[in-house]
Nucleic acid binder design. Structure first.
Length: 967
RNA sequence: UGGGGUGUAGCUCAGUGGGAGAGCGUCCGCUUCACACGCGGAAGGUCGUAGGUUCAACCCCUAUCACCCCAACCA
């Protein structure tokens, strides 16, 4: 008794608004009219360009994308942050992939009732953007007939103005492209790493880290980009294989006072070093050999005279030296090589900087001063050759560190920079992953993460650029002390000198410093905003594995340090999108597939679905345009399936059942036609598979389930079956129309996160749609929206599960397929109708055929299907072909006269017999194997026995059919 | 050098301890009144190689080869 009203109440909740929020003081406007697009007609074929833009505009304008700062009571929050693309960038396939995945999850959770925030925004991308503007400036200068204009010609302020303008002019490109892809961002919350709020967060973080002793300023060896004239971090230098030379140079061995040392032969002794960068010789402060290298033991404690400059430097021993490489003697240039720097520290060697920040040799380079590095190298080689100090030159392939952004070699040099002391930050970040508070998927990436985190080096965060967050440090010209503060200080923090004695640091911060704060800075941190409370920690981080160190690790470190909590609990890493040959897409190779071109040709949905279907974990995506075209075909298929529905409605509408299609179908499920029960059962099963795929982050499996069901069950079978019912009319027609509408509508909802545009367009065409609202919109009094976007995501309906119907339809399909196979193999054109008879050994089978007679006739294109006049094939004429079916056991008879050559059918039978024989011998092999019968599960043995019997029967029928044909 | 991944139909990829699937391509037959962006049928694979575990291996284990990626201090 008590269950009935409860159930009814539950149903009401489903149909009507979800959970009424007892809005505290917010006035509710309960009767606000629903927002809706003007009705549109479904005609022609799938042409995405006709509707995608207007749908997106409608969604955005009606506030469907908006998150609420606070979730409604009982409502979950769900948040994904976009990995901020470069503000002046263009959408590439990597963006398309990551955002397609994210948006699918977001839409799914939104439809599931969560308060979802898909946070949009862009990154100022320091070097990249500054370089663009500088390039444009240079071009301007050249076009005007003069020399290229540099940023220094403009000065910092003017240049920044230009860059902001450039940003304003270009930012809409990437955001427009993300809209084009259908991503449901809450655009009202769009953030930019250089906007006021985020800049404030950056300064706050800098100041706090400084006060905690985690940021320091120091003179260290760093990577220098001579193009952007800035320091870059270790990560921004990509070791790249380059062909070069290994020069062997002779250094004279001397005493500390410079007097020559004689070798074993009594002549002047030399020591040969091998180097790939001879110009660094100018900065050498030692030569090192391995302590146990016998070749050089005589030189321990001696000195070497630097060729060309004549400087006397010590010969020291260090186990770092590889005896096998080169000559086994290593020149040490502590100021221009990371390893040499370490060796220099161990042996207290002086630093001699010869490579200047401007890409030219410094004064310390003596006669080579002011030459650029390339010229200096050439001159030094020539001079060495001339003085007989160049022993030999070998070709040598080695790794050169190229700057990520500019592609030019990075020059290690010693410079005063700002650093983050990383170890104290890394420790908790390692622990968070070790303890499982953050999980990576695929899990193997955790190893990569640990590897890097355990060996992490201090992070050089200062950049000698102008575009970025200026280091919030001021130098006092009175006391020389540094004042670090969030806002420009009014006086020196040490001596109290006036602000005019203070000068702000010229440098800006590494772009990744600000993107590391993204998960909380976008939500208003350091303020304790409601949004921060609602959405932090974010739900999922989805990005490419190439920025694990750049971005993911830094977000974890910063998040833990500043919020005390992880920034996200799950990290999903997708693969790289390559071209169809598996090559990395690159402009120079010219193999870039532009997502915008693809969308222009096939629509956003086809591109999204392709990427999702191919995004299996742990494998690169080789994007194939054929595949995209295939999924465009899929969109068209859906389009036409819906059109088919409308055509049936046009033959005579059926009123929506009282209480909705679902409850009507549930109430009447016993009276439904088997095919209707079947499709409902299949639908709910597929629903389960799709939901599981989404929950387990296997979007490719979910996509596959959707595709297979839609095309191969709904379209290939169900719609074909439905035609029989529609022709029949009456009750059959009515229940089939209701079923078809229900299945279509549910399916569209189910696939909407994957293909938002086409599903919405089709859904809007359906007759029984109703506007819907989200819990938070409802609470805040926002109007309901006539859109698929806010409909409830379907759950499997177990009451539709029906294994009986599934078995029945499988048997029916078996009969139809046997007939189709007969037709196809015998090449009987579709236009020729076949008259068939059947022989059913059991009355139940006879009833089965009678029940589905019209279905079989329609789908196998038979002109007749009657009971055979004679039982068995004993009395049948010679031209009768027999088609045996095993489940249910029956024979189909077709008169070959006028249809097929007897020989053709004979051939078909022989082939069939061969196959059955093969199957049979395999099964018998198993069944005669004693260990199989003894050890395999009993059910399996029984199943195989059953199959054996089936096959024996089939074989007998085939053979007798064959003898009769040929006899 | 170390770590990870991949190897399945002509191509691009799914997949499971009980005789391997899809899309595209190929071949055959189709203006079947939703769809030629389609319908029906078919051909095509010793699931990289060699061992092992198991009644049973494409799947688990070991070795090996090939390709890819990542991290690296061989100047």
């Amino acid at each position: 008794m008590a269950t009935k009203p409860a159930r009814a109440a539950k149903k009401n909740v489903r149909k009507a608004a979800p959970q009424k929020a007892p809005a505290r003081s917010a006035p509710r406007r309960p009767s606000a009219p629903a927002l809706a697009l003007p009705p549109r007609e479904l005609t022609g074929s799938f042409e995405p360009a006709k509707f995608e833009a207007s749908l997106y505009e409608f969604w955005e304008k009606s506030g469907c994308f908006d998150a609420a700062d606070e979730s409604a009571p009982g409502q979950k929050s769900f948040c994904i942050m976009i990995p901020p693309p470069n503000v002046t960038g263009h959408l590439h396939m990597g963006h398309a992939l990551t955002n397609a995945i994210q948006d699918t999850l977001i839409r799914w959770r939104r439809m599931s009732g969560d308060n979802t925030l898909y946070q949009p925004g862009t990154d100022h991308a320091g070097i990249a953007t500054q370089l663009m503007v500088e390039r444009a400036l240079a071009d301007e200068g050249r076009k005007a007939g003069g020399r290229p204009i540099t940023r220094h010609d403009l000065g910092r302020e003017k240049f920044l103005e230009r860059t902001w303008k450039w940003k304003e002019d270009h930012a809409h490109i990437i955001t427009g492209q993300l809209r084009r892809l259908g991503c449901s961002f809450d655009w009202k919350r769009e953030r930019f790493t250089l906007d006021d709020g985020l800049s404030r967060a950056v300064r706050e973080v800098f100041v706090r880290l400084y006060k905690d002793g985690l940021i320091y300023r120091g003179e260290r060896i760093i990577n220098w980009d001579t193009v952007s004239q800035s320091a870059v971090s270790d990560l921004e230098v990509v070791p790249t294989e380059r062909k070069g030379f290994l020069w062997h140079i002779k250094y004279a061995v001397v005493e500390s006072d410079g007097t020559p040392v004689a070798g074993a032969d009594g002549k002047e002794a030399f020591l040969t070093i091998a180097t790939t960068r001879p110009e660094t010789l100018l900065g050498d402060t030692a030569v090192a050999v391995h302590p146990e290298d016998d070749r050089y033991s005589a030189f321990h404690g001696k000195h070497a005279k630097l060729p060309l400059l004549g400087r006397v430097i010590p010969i020291l021993t260090d186990t770092y030296v590889e005896r096998e490489f080169g000559t086994g003697a290593l020149k040490i240039t502590p100021a221009h090589d990371f390893n040499d720097y370490e060796i220099g520290k161990r042996h207290n060697l002086p630093l001699v900087s010869v490579m200047g920040k401007d890409g030219k040799i410094t004064a310390a380079g003596g006669p080579y001063a002011a030459m650029d590095f390339k010229t200096a190298r050439e001159r030094i080689i020539a001079d060495l050759k001339e003085s007989g100090r160049l022993e030999k030159t070998e070709e040598h392939t080695h790794k050169v560190g190229l700057c990520d952004r500019t592609g030019q070699p990075a020059e290690p040099l010693v410079s005063k920079q700002w650093f983050v002391k990383i170890e104290p930050l890394a420790k908790p970040a390692i622990a968070a992953v070790e303890s499982g508070k953050i999980e990576f998927s695929p899990k193997s990436w955790e190893k990569t993460y640990f590897e890097w985190m355990y060996n992490i080096r201090d992070w050089c965060i200062s950049r000698q650029l102008w575009w970025g967050h200026r280091v919030p440090a001021w130098y006092c010209s009175t006391c020389q002390e540094i004042t670090v503060a969030v806002e420009a200080p009014a006086a020196c923090g040490s001596c109290g000198a006036d602000a005019d004695r203070l000068k702000q640091d010229e440098d800006v911060l590494d772009t990744w410093f600000s993107s590391g704060l993204w998960p909380f800075s976008t939500l208003g941190w350091p303020e304790k905003t409601p949004a921060l409370n609602t959405f932090y920690p974010t739900s999922i981080l989805e990005t490419g594995f190439d920025i694990i160190f750049f971005w993911v690790a830094r977000m974890i470190m910063m998040g833990l340090h500043f919020t005390g909590d992880v920034p996200f609990r799950k990290v999903y890493l997708h693969a790289m999108v390559r071209d169809e040959k598996g090559e990395k897409m690159s402009k120079t190779k010219g193999n870039v597939i532009d997502p915008l071109d693809v969308m222009a040709e096939h629509g956003a949905d086809a591109l999204r679905f392709t990427l999702l279907a191919m995004a299996g974990q742990g494998r690169d995506i080789k994007l194939s345009l054929d595949r995209v075209a295939g999924y465009r075909g899929f969109c068209n298929k859906l389009w036409n399936a819906t059109k088919f529905f409308h055509l049936q409605v046009a033959q005579g509408a059926v009123a929506e059942p009282q209480g909705g299609a679902e409850s009507w179908l549930l109430k009447n499920k016993v009276e439904l036609l088997p095919v209707n029960r079947w499709v409902l059962s299949r639908l709910q099963q597929v629903n389960g598979a799709v939901t599981k795929g989404l929950e387990e982050f296997r979007l490719n499996e979910a996509a596959q389930a959707i595709y297979d069901f839609s095309w191969h069950e709904l379209c290939d079978w169900y719609i074909e079956f439905s035609k029989v019912s529609f022709k029949e009319g009456g009750e059959a027609r009515k229940q089939t129309l209701i079923t078809l509408h229900y299945v279509l509508e549910r399916l569209l909802r189910m696939m909407h996160p994957f293909m938002p545009f086409v599903t919405e367009e089709l859904w809007l065409s359906l007759p029984w749609k109703k506007p819907a609202n989200s819990p938070t919109r409802e609470r805040d009094g926002a109007p309901a929206v006539m859109s698929l976007m806010l409909q409830k995501y379907p759950q499997p309906e177990p009451r539709f599960a029906n294994s009986e119907a599934e078995k029945t339809v499988a048997a029916l399909q078996g009969i139809i397929e046997a007939l189709r196979n007969f037709r196809g193999e015998n090449r009987i054109p579709t236009s020729k109708e076949i008259a068939a008879c059947y022989v059913a050994p059991r009355t139940a089978t006879d009833a089965f055929v009678q029940l589905f007679r019209s279905d079989i006739m329609a789908m196998a294109r038979l002109s007749a299907l009657e009971k055979a006049p004679v039982n068995g094939n004993g009395g049948a004429p010679r031209t009768i072909a027999v088609i045996p079916v095993t489940n249910p056991a029956l024979e189909l008879h077709v008169d070959l006269k006028g249809l097929v050559d007897v020989e053709e059918e004979t051939k078909r039978l022989r082939k069939e017999i061969e196959r059955v024989q093969g199957d049979l011998s395999f099964i018998r092999g198993k069944l005669t194997n004693e260990s199989f019968v003894a050890k395999a599960p009993k059910e399996l043995v029984a199943k195989e026995k059953g199959r054996e019997n089936e096959l024996v029967g089939k074989l007998r029928e085939l053979e007798s059919a064959l003898t009769r044909l040929s006899g």
